[in-house]
Design a protein around this nucleic acid. Structure first.
Lengths: 137, 137
DNA sequence: TTAGTATATAAAGTTAACTTTAGGTCAAAT
DNA sequence: ATTTGACCTAAAGTTAACTTTATATACTAA
């Protein structure tokens, strides 16, 4: 089973120009072409795009991903580099998860703060009976 | 206790130009100035900067944050908006946490994949005895 | 045969969030 | 008295990741 660029775009919820951009940047070097130059995506190309989509939210750049793809093409001599890359990325994601947890705690605090303020009709409920809290509590 | 821009930069691990940029963008409107124009940061300004730093990793933009700061200055009439903002942001962060979990699962899979490959000396350990797995397993 | 639809490329434009550069003020130390 | 170091502004530059625009080709249905 193969897919056109439009089909892949729909399937993965990416725009067609984004897919062409990824191709230009060397992220999907195994996509084939018809005689007149139209891209033909295989399942394995889609799998790779899914990996890319999964790696992106962790802040891995297009360039980093390209490097990884190149290493894949280079075979067993790059196994250590690829392993190291993912170990590093694991650390990055762990840090992000912590940060996101802190953000969530702040947001929960804010939600509670504004819920109470709304019920009272004024933010002052948080100011009265308290000393030393800041404007941005 | 007050702080110079350089002290705040060190304390919060932000660059001086970034702090000036935030000021220009209206993110820290309560920072005062000396007669000759030098910024003077109070504890409450630093608290606000910490809130900003906490909100940023969740993808909240400078513009969104500015809107929030403006609402804060507008008083009780914006309580609902502020509450809604944080409810929305909560949903955003929840989604991000899920995505990050997926990313982490993929990374763990890759780490294991490359660990095994390294021990065997070749990626082929994953190809032999198996049918239908992709190049990017 | 012509209108519509999907594809292609190259190159320019966009946006966010900074950073860098250039030029200037001011107080303290040498 | 001048040099050093920290501060200031305005404006231009940077980078990533796309998006948009302009132009062209190719198949497909009426």
């Amino acid at each position: 089973m193969t897919y056109s660029i439009g089909e892949v775009a729909k399937k993965l919820n990416l725009s067609i120009p984004t897919l062409r951009y990824y191709d230009r940047e060397g992220l999907i070097p195994f996509v084939e072409r018809t005689d007149n130059g139209t891209r033909v995506f295989k399942e394995s190309d889609i799998d790779l795009l899914k990996v890319i989509q999964c790696l992106k939210p962790s802040g891995m750049t297009i360039k980093d991903i390209k490097t990884f793809i190149e290493w894949c093409s280079d075979g067993d001599s790059t196994l250590q580099q690829r392993y190291d890359l993912f170990l590093e990325q694991k650390a990055v994601v762990e840090k992000q998860m912590e940060e996101l947890k802190n953000t969530m705690d702040l947001i929960d605090h804010k939600c509670h703060y504004y819920k109470v303020a709304l019920e009272a009709g004024t933010e002052n409920v948080h100011k009265n009976n308290k000393i030393g809290n800041t404007v941005f509590d």
